[in-house]
């Protein structure tokens, strides 16, 4: 380092990268993030440890401590025998109901929205934009404003409190966002793609199945994630439209926890809560970046 000699004695010449010192601001940044992370993680921790404790241990307090006596009893009970009122079948009927509802509603709502988005992008007709405007308006409408007439309507055709009924309801209320998602996606495709399809004399369905459907795989992944978590987590529609036979897991969870008869079994409640949250959490952690993309899809365009 020739320059060292050139500089005045004693002073170290500045050369190369600036020496990195762990500055106060850097520590502050990490401190903030870690404290925030603790705030977000704490409830999960509490849920897990509570669900693994015995009731006597819970009654001693020490909310945050790891259980002294590990027990999986509450999990079994939450799944199998926890009571809501007189029924003591645990969460499992609710789980299977949610599976049924989700498994039916997700594909139905996505297929419907996909066709909507496709038609709105390539096959507009008189009034189609107006319909879309109404749909977007529907995204903002508080559900309470339409729920009651919908109950009456579904009762009239005998679908109220049935599985097809709740599937229809989820399809209706998922339609605004999903249609928008697909419309924007199809509108971003090059128009030449569509024109090429027209040249080959493929009609509405021909172009849809042969060209558009294969192209919309990525956006459909986003839609599936969105709908699966959304429908699984639904509470209001489940309460109102599903009926006793098809009561989804969230509703049953709430009934188990808020049931007032007998002793409150906090460990069973927390095990039930985790069980209910498990499916969307698994979807979230598996899908990772896609989940964020689904959320961000709306954000980027602003």
């Amino acid at each position: 380092m020739t320059n060292l000699a050139a500089t005045s004695a004693g002073a170290i010449s500045a050369r190369g990268p600036k020496p990195r010192t762990l500055t106060a601001s850097r520590i502050g940044v990490y401190a903030f993030l870690i404290i925030a992370a603790l705030f977000f993680l704490l409830p999960l921790w509490v849920m897990v440890v509570t669900s693994l404790k015995t009731l006597p241990e819970i009654r001693q307090g020490h909310l945050f401590n790891w259980p002294e006596l590990l027990t999986f009893e509450p999990w079994l009970k939450a799944w199998d025998t926890a009571c809501t009122g007189r029924d003591c079948n645990g969460l499992k009927p609710g789980f299977w109901n949610s599976v049924k509802i989700t498994a039916l509603s997700v594909p139905v709502s996505i297929v419907v929205a996909m066709i909507n988005g496709y038609a709105l992008s390539f096959w507009k007709y008189r009034g189609s934009e107006f319909l879309f405007g109404v749909l977007i308006f529907g995204a903002f409408v508080p559900y309470q404003v339409v729920i009651y007439p919908l109950i009456i309507g579904l009762s009239k055709v005998g679908l109220f409190a049935t599985l097809p009924g709740i599937v229809i309801v989820h399809t209706i209320f998922g339609m605004p966002i999903l249609t928008l998602l697909y419309r924007n996606f199809f509108a971003s495709l090059p128009i030449e793609l569509f024109k090429a399809g027209r040249v080959d004399w493929a009609g509405f369905w021909g172009i849809f199945f042969r060209i558009m459907l294969p192209m919309s795989v990525p956006i459909t992944i986003v839609a599936v994630i969105l709908q699966t978590t959304g429908i699984w987590n639904d509470f209001l529609f489940g309460t109102v439209f599903a009926g006793r036979e098809n009561m989804p897991m969230t509703v049953q969870l709430n009934n188990i926890v808020t049931t007032t008869t007998g002793v409150r079994e906090y460990n069973v409640n927390m095990a039930a809560t985790i069980l209910t949250a498990a499916v969307p959490l698994v979807v979230y952690f598996i899908s990772g970046k896609w989940f964020v993309r689904g959320i961000a899809a709306g954000a980027v365009k602003g």
Binding site: I136, A139, G174, P176, L180
Partner: peptide, 9 residues
């Protein structure tokens, strides 16, 4: 979901 979609719309 509804809200963010609508915003984008």
């Amino acid at each position: 979901q509804g809200g963010e979609g609508a915003a984008a719309g």
